[in-house]
């Protein structure tokens, strides 16, 4: 997998025990296109402030979460796949 980075123009917001990404254009919040994330998704989104490869993301997840490599890799791929489809990565 090539390295990816998050696009600009989105705000990550915490709501209770979940997260949302809100697109922003100028001063307008595009809440209709809001995306829900779980905790891992929010963590990965924060990581992608800088360009990273799947291996680098995996390393970060394994460092911060008590999870096995297989599950972590699956979560990362799932996130990248969904975020890519939503067009929020570059």
């Amino acid at each position: 997998m090539e390295s990816v980075k998050r696009k600009n123009g989105y705000l990550l917001r915490e709501l209770g025990n979940s997260y949302v990404i809100v697109p922003i254009a100028g001063k307008q919040l595009k809440f209709q296109d809001m995306l829900s994330l779980n905790e891992t998704g929010a963590f990965l989104w924060e990581q992608l402030r800088e360009e990273k490869t799947e291996e680098e993301l995996l390393e970060a997840v394994l460092l911060d979460y008590q999870v096995d490599e297989k599950t972590a890799r699956r979560d990362i791929r799932e996130f990248i796949d969904q975020a890519g489809k939503a067009g929020i990565l570059q």
């Binding site: 209770g16 979940s18 949302v20 919040l29 809001m34």
Partner: peptide, 25 residues
């Protein structure tokens, strides 16, 4: 139910913020 309510409240808040900036403009 609570998650859904929180999501709706957030959406309503964002709508309101957009409206505020429209008025301020």
């Amino acid at each position: 139910y609570l998650k859904q309510q929180e999501f709706v409240t957030a959406m309503m808040y964002y709508q309101m913020v957009n409206f505020v900036f429209m008025v301020l403009e």
